[in-house]
């Protein structure tokens, strides 16, 4: 199987790795870059545990190949906290609202949530629940995750208080 040299940045740091064409971005990050914070939950693109931001868009890193990331700017969970380890607003909200238990799905939810908070559209109850239904969590029953992203959105001025609150489907 042919090998390819790929260059991209991860959390602002330039990387150049050599990978087989068939190696997923998830494995490229984990194996070639040593960034094991990105977790692989299903390799089918269903669970979302491996979600990373590629050029500021959330992607399942198990569904794209490392070679497709040529020239991309990638962000992973390791890039969220400050260099001294201080949690960012969203990470802190996850701790405050018990948005994690075993922590395996958490990096994927954090990257999805990071994108949700950076979008131009503000969040409301409907969009919060709809977008967070992209990923699977087996421990929390989702309540803590919804509460955490909502709280972070409020802190960051990204919450639309005028939107109606509707119940889940």
């Amino acid at each position: 199987m042919s090998r390819h040299t790929v260059a991209f940045t991860v959390n602002g740091i330039a990387r150049r790795v050599e990978v087989e064409a068939r190696r997923t971005l998830a494995e490229t990050l984990r194996e070639n870059c040593g960034l094991t914070g990105t977790h692989v939950g299903c390799e089918h693109g269903v669970c979302g545990a491996c979600t990373v931001l590629v050029d500021d868009v959330p992607l399942r890193s198990c569904l794209i190949f490392g070679v497709q990331a040529e020239g991309a700017s990638i962000r992973t969970v390791e890039g969220l906290a400050a260099p001294d380890g201080a949690l960012d607003v969203l990470q802190q909200a996850f701790q405050d609202h018990h948005g994690l238990q075993c922590g395996f799905c958490t990096p994927g939810f954090l990257m999805l949530g990071t994108w949700m908070l950076e979008r131009s559209e503000r969040l409301n109850e409907d969009s919060l629940r709809e977008i967070l239904s992209s990923n699977l969590c087996r421990c929390t029953g989702y309540q803590g995750i919804l509460d955490a992203v909502r709280a972070a959105a409020r802190t960051l001025g990204r919450w639309d208080d005028d939107a109606g609150i509707s119940s889940p489907a």
Partner: peptide, 12 residues
């Protein structure tokens, strides 16, 4: 347990 897991520094 949370900070390490939230920073992607858990060890699975």
């Amino acid at each position: 347990e949370d900070p390490a897991l939230l920073r992607g520094e858990g060890r699975f």
